[in-house]
Design a protein around this nucleic acid. Structure first.
Lengths: 148, 148
DNA sequence: TATTGTTATACTCTATAACTATA
DNA sequence: TATAGTTATAGAGTATAACAATA
């Protein structure tokens, strides 16, 4: 018996994530010329303040190369400042510049508005249920992938 | 005020889809050496029988180039057979070979088992709610993207 | 000897458009 | 003149490993 692709969960979630991702990227990519990775690093730094690369990796689900490249490009654009980590000579601390914070402040209301538009399709109850379901399924996926 | 990236919906859904996608790809990619696009075309042909390229495009959410390449590779591997469309000399009809059907029959129980494992984290009610919520949010995303 | 982070390289994907053949 | 599908090509993203510096 064939798989009904249209109802197959991995297919549906992939298509949804793609649509949501493109809808969000319209803001940070088209209007602010940031890649997805750069946007994630920008958002992570806005939350975390001044942190080491390893903290950025964890917080953005990016690997060290992706973080390295994103930070290099953001630094080149004057949005991020990096300095040697006094506690570990191999590493760096990175933080937003005033320009980086300013850009973040401009992007946030726009992406939040899009997020709100997406989720306003749901009642508060539905929203809480979706929240819990996504977490539960993600947990299962981690088991299948063997990482926690 | 910063975005809490960990709770930001587009980020969460992207991470979940990535995890689910990798968990599913472990089956069709590692064990059967298919790309995601090839798997989608295989699944679509198993459902649809003998169809034109345009039907594959719609059913798999792939564009004509992606379908063209996937079909070419599947045909080279003896899994798909293509023949000229008698009703339209520009197009082709493609269908699975016995080998293609056999591979599909082997893959389906495995990916279904993974899907079931993911969704068994939810009660039937939760599952129905998730279903409806994903459709509703997807509909909103389509509005943002301006395609329906 | 292990870890942090960069650089190099190769590979896969994606996006665009040019092109052939047919409608 | 428009459409179905292929081919070409360039750009972006991804994955692996080699590497330098420090722990």
């Amino acid at each position: 018996m064939p798989v009904d692709l249209q109802r197959f969960f991995p297919y549906r979630i992939a298509r949804l994530a793609d649509a949501v991702s493109r809808a969000t990227a319209q803001v940070y990519a088209e209007r602010f010329d940031l890649s997805r990775d750069e946007w994630r690093v920008l958002a992570a730094l806005a939350e975390l303040g001044e942190v080491r690369t390893s903290a950025l990796m964890e917080h953005s689900t990016l690997d060290k190369m992706q973080v390295s490249r994103a930070v290099t490009r953001l630094a080149g654009a004057g949005l991020v400042l990096r300095s040697p980590d006094p506690a570990d000579g191999r590493g760096y601390l990175q933080r937003l510049t005033p320009a980086g914070r300013a850009m973040h402040r401009r992007i946030v209301p726009m992406v939040r508005a899009r997020e709100a538009f997406l989720l306003d399709a749901l009642s508060p109850d539905q929203r809480a249920a979706l929240d819990a379901a996504l977490d539960a399924v993600h947990e299962r996926a981690r088991v299948l992938l063997g990482d926690g």
